[in-house]
Amino acid sequence: MDRFVVVSGCSGGGKSTLVAELARRGHVTVAEPGRRIVERERASGGLALPWVDLAAFARAAIAMALDDRAALMAEDDPASGAAPVFFDRGLVDAAAALEHASGEKVLEDLAAAHRYNPLVFMTPPWPEIYTQDPGRRHGFQDALAEYERLLVAYPAHGYEVVPVPRTSVSARADFVLERLGL
């Protein structure tokens, strides 16, 4: 769906901060499934954590991303116009993670059945702002490897990757909105 816009890229590259700025400006946003899953699993003692069982984590991220899309599509009011919805990561991210973790081939079918806007905004690796925290335990090298996989996965499934410049959060949001013609 063209109004569903993905912000993806390097873990720790400022995706969530950019999406939060878009929300602050009044746009509808969807929080990253991974962060929500980590919070839920840590609170419940669950094991679908990327550092415990990456495949289970990725399957949970796929399910959550599908649920997010379904909820937004059910709420869709044709009279409301085509206001964009900004996703902090998308199904391609989760499916690419599952394929990496398990070899299970899901990306092609999911990417074909559940489309987003053809422009995917990718935050590049940015070592100066990268941090680990209780929900992001992997190191910068793992984040780079994930980023490289996404740089291949998105274009392979018909998306145009738009690199987001390393600049202030406000300028990044302006860039995304301008590129979308908003």
Rank of each mutant, 00 (worst) to 15 (best):
D2W: 08
F4V: 03
F4W: 01
F4C: 01
V5R: 04
V7C: 05
C10P: 04
G12L: 10
G13W: 10
G13E: 10
K15H: 02
S16H: 08
T17K: 01
L18V: 04
L18I: 03
V19N: 00
E21H: 07
L22C: 11
L22F: 01
A23N: 10
A23Q: 11
A23G: 14
R24D: 04
G26E: 00
H27T: 05
V28T: 11
V28W: 05
T29H: 01
A31N: 07
A31T: 08
E32T: 10
E32D: 01
P33T: 03
G34Y: 02
G34F: 04
R36T: 09
E39V: 13
R40Q: 14
E41C: 01
E41D: 02
E41V: 05
A43C: 02
S44E: 09
S44L: 12
G46Y: 09
L47E: 15
L47P: 02
L47Y: 08
W51E: 03
L54H: 15
A55Q: 06
A55K: 11
A56W: 06
A58V: 11
A60P: 09
A60N: 10
I62F: 07
I62W: 08
M64R: 15
M64Q: 15
M64A: 14
L66T: 08
L66G: 09
D68L: 03
A70W: 04
A71I: 00
A71T: 00
A71M: 01
L72S: 02
M73C: 07
A74G: 05
A74V: 06
E75Q: 03
E75G: 01
D76H: 13
D77M: 00
P78W: 05
S80P: 03
G81H: 01
G81I: 08
A83H: 14
V85G: 03
F86L: 06
D88S: 09
D88F: 01
R89M: 03
R89Q: 00
A94T: 13
A94E: 06
A94H: 06
A95I: 06
A96S: 13
A97T: 12
L98A: 03
H100T: 13
A101V: 12
S102R: 14
G103N: 10
G103E: 11
E104S: 10
E104R: 11
H114P: 00
H114Y: 08
Y116E: 04
N117M: 05
N117V: 00
P118K: 14
L119M: 14
V120Y: 02
F121E: 00
P125E: 12
P125A: 09
P127K: 10
E128Y: 06
E128F: 08
T131M: 10
T131R: 14
Q132D: 08
Q132N: 15
Q132A: 13
P134G: 11
R137N: 11
H138G: 13
G139T: 14
D142A: 15
A143P: 04
Y147T: 14
R149W: 02
R149Y: 04
L150V: 08
L151E: 12
P155M: 06
H157N: 07
G158V: 14
E160Y: 10
V161P: 08
V162P: 09
P163W: 10
P165G: 02
R166G: 03
R166S: 01
S168H: 05
S170F: 07
A171D: 09
R172L: 07
A173P: 05
F175K: 01
F175N: 03
V176M: 00
L177K: 04
R179S: 11
R179G: 05
R179P: 04
L180A: 02
L180M: 02
L180G: 10
G181C: 05
L182A: 13
